[in-house]
Computed example of a mutant assay.
Amino acid sequence: MLTGLLTSSPGSASASALLRTFPSIGHVITAEASQLRTFGLTGRDIALFRLVREIACRMAKAEVRNRPALSNWQALLTYLQTAMAYEQIEQFRILFLDRKNNLIADEVQQRGTVNHTPVYPREVVKRALILNASALIVIHNHPSGDPKPSREDIQTTRDLKAAASALEIELHDHVVIGHGTHASFRSLGLL
């Protein structure tokens, strides 16, 4: 599909040129429009990339939507990889869960820079109270592709856990998404 799309218009980029510049197809379909235009892609080409990505995200999210998140962990990780792994800036996402760990809401609360996203525990807990959430899973991506938690990630998680616990909201996990991999604070013994 990528090859067909990129070779369909005269003067447009070739798939091989894009993949020589970007490390993966995930990086290509999440690249900024201005980056893609330098390869000769048209607005139509870029819109098609966005559509493909949106379809993939919606399909992955559908697998998560109607089942408890904790008993559907692999589908949840697949969705998070699809939605976040190749973003060029960090984003902080929160999954708000009910008492049975069903998804109430999935929200990107913050967007940051290439290596930092501010997180405000007060705002996370405030939103959880508004949604009547009983539990949370927080997620952020590392644009570098390496999901290893930083010291700041660990401290932020401790602060989030303390704020949530004070209001009887369970923080089930903090997941860092990398390129095709992830780090779970719970699995690492950090939560």
Rank of each mutant, 00 (worst) to 15 (best):
P143W: 04
A56H: 09
A166D: 12
P121Y: 03
V64P: 04
S187I: 00
E32L: 11
I55E: 14
L160Y: 05
L103M: 03
N72G: 04
E32I: 01
I169P: 04
R58H: 08
C57W: 04
L77N: 06
S144N: 14
D159S: 10
R67N: 07
F49M: 15
P68R: 07
V64M: 07
L160I: 14
K148R: 15
R53Y: 09
H116A: 13
A60N: 02
P118G: 03
R151L: 12
Q109L: 15
R37Y: 12
R50E: 15
S71K: 08
I104L: 12
N102W: 06
P143T: 02
Q155S: 12
E54I: 04
Q155H: 08
E123K: 06
Y86F: 13
R93A: 11
P10S: 08
N102G: 05
M1K: 14
H179C: 05
T38Y: 00
P147I: 06
T38V: 10
I46M: 09
R122H: 13
L77T: 05
Y86L: 03
R186Y: 11
R65Q: 12
V176K: 00
H182Y: 14
L95E: 07
S9A: 13
E123P: 02
A105P: 01
V138W: 08
K61N: 01
V124Q: 05
A162W: 01
A166K: 15
R151D: 15
G4Q: 14
N102Y: 14
G4Y: 03
A128Y: 07
R58L: 13
V28I: 13
L41P: 04
Q35T: 11
F96T: 00
N141M: 07
N101L: 13
S144I: 10
I94W: 05
Y79S: 03
L167V: 09
E63F: 09
D45H: 15
Y79W: 11
E87P: 05
L36M: 06
R127L: 13
A13M: 04
G26H: 06
K148G: 07
A163I: 01
N72R: 05
I25R: 12
E168V: 10
A47G: 08
T157Q: 11
P149R: 08
I137L: 12
A56D: 15
A128G: 07
A105M: 07
A183G: 00
L19A: 02
L70P: 00
R67C: 00
L6K: 06
I139M: 03
D45P: 00
H116K: 11
F39V: 12
H116T: 06
S134A: 11
R37K: 15
I177Y: 03
A85Y: 03
D45Q: 13
A13T: 02
P118R: 10
S16N: 14
A85F: 02
T7A: 09
S12L: 00
R58Y: 07
V124D: 02
L190S: 11
L136Y: 07
